[in-house]
Computed example of a mutant assay.
Amino acid sequence: MKDTTGFYDNLPRIAQFSELTSPASYWSLPDDWVVGTADIVGSTGLIAEGQYKLVNMIGASVISAHINASGGQAFPYIFGGDGAALAVDPARAAESARILGVLKRWADEEFGVSLRVAQVPVSEIRAGGFDVSVARYRASGAVDYAMFSGGGLSWAEARMKAGENALPAAEPGAQPDLEGLSCRWSNATARNGCILSLVVRPAPDRPRAAFDRVMHDIVELAEGLHRSGHPLPPDGPGLEFPPPGLDLEAHVSRGRTSMFRRRLELLAENLIAWVFFKAGLKTGEFEPAHYKAMVSTNADFRKFDDGLKMTLDCDAGTQWRIRSVLDTARKGGILRYGMVEQEAAMITCFVPSIHQDDHIHLVDGASGGYAKATEMMRARPV
């Protein structure tokens, strides 16, 4: 049997986001790979209670735990706001299943949140009539993000929600390795109108070409915005002391340490960081201004996952044009969509080292974002 371990490593990195609207940019995952999915049960209620930062953090934990276990080997993953999806080669399938089970246990014990987790072979997805194709979008020289096409992720997620392919929770007390996962930055307030969270999916059983054409038009409209609608300032987001996500980060990073002790540790760490960033102090290889700029450069604010998701700093005129294109396509039976306006964007981060540029920053709307837009989409049939 052919060794498919290096499949993802060998994919080209695509620098132009608009190229991702073309099927030619995607490569089918090998049959022997597996897809893992996770999402939060009752995320709508948590959002209504103002706990979307918690929702984002748990969703991002799926990614960070897998990166920490990867030994530096790249794999495709995607952040969905209230969950995440990923794919791994067969050599890592058992470890990925274990990690997902640990996260399920941890989310329940640490936060009282029910996390659904599942795993399904790519071959089974194809047997169900869908594909899983991936592309690599280069955000910077040090960071790239996976994009997915083919309908396979949506199929796997729907099966998970129906109770299929579910993975059990790990033993009580199991702890994931979430080193590097944080939420220290302040929300980024809209500068050009509003923060627009957009979720678009193709209508079922319709030719894909029409959907791809509409996606090209939407991406083109978004790229006409200032900095393509990037929701973070070019010099990076703001930093407060104490940071608004301190308690949440204490929960995520405390392991078996008491919350009181971990809060004190984080307060000390954040105070030092705040002084360095405010004063622009350099130490060794760490340069605060460069680091903040890379937060913006590396931000994951737009993606394809069997459809299109974007979090944009959007002016009223462009928002109207985007909505007009989408409404026409929806009435034509081509797609479904949800759109949410907010005042700010939220950033959840994974930072292996402050001395390197490979830190990743997952962006979503601060008031429900992708999760709320998805609910809105589901409430509006084609």
Rank of each mutant, 00 (worst) to 15 (best):
K2Q: 13
K2E: 13
F7S: 10
L11F: 04
F17D: 10
Y26D: 05
V41M: 06
A48E: 14
Y52P: 00
K53A: 13
L54I: 03
N56S: 11
M57C: 12
I58W: 02
A60K: 03
S61V: 05
V62E: 03
A65G: 11
G71P: 15
A87S: 15
A93R: 11
D108R: 15
E109L: 05
E110Y: 01
A118F: 02
V122I: 11
A127H: 05
D144L: 02
S149M: 10
R159W: 05
A169Q: 02
Q175E: 15
Q175W: 03
L181F: 10
L181T: 05
L181C: 07
L181H: 05
S182E: 13
C183I: 14
C183F: 09
N187R: 13
A188I: 07
A188F: 09
A190E: 03
S197F: 07
R208D: 14
A222K: 02
E223S: 14
L225F: 05
P231M: 07
F241C: 08
F241N: 06
P244W: 01
V252W: 06
T257G: 08
S258H: 09
E265F: 10
T283H: 13
A289D: 13
H290Y: 09
R302G: 04
K303W: 02
D306M: 04
C314L: 06
V325I: 00
G333K: 01
E343P: 00
T348H: 03
Q356T: 15
H359E: 12
A366H: 08
G368W: 01
A371T: 12
K372W: 03
T374Y: 15
R378Q: 14
A379Q: 13
R380Q: 11
V382M: 09
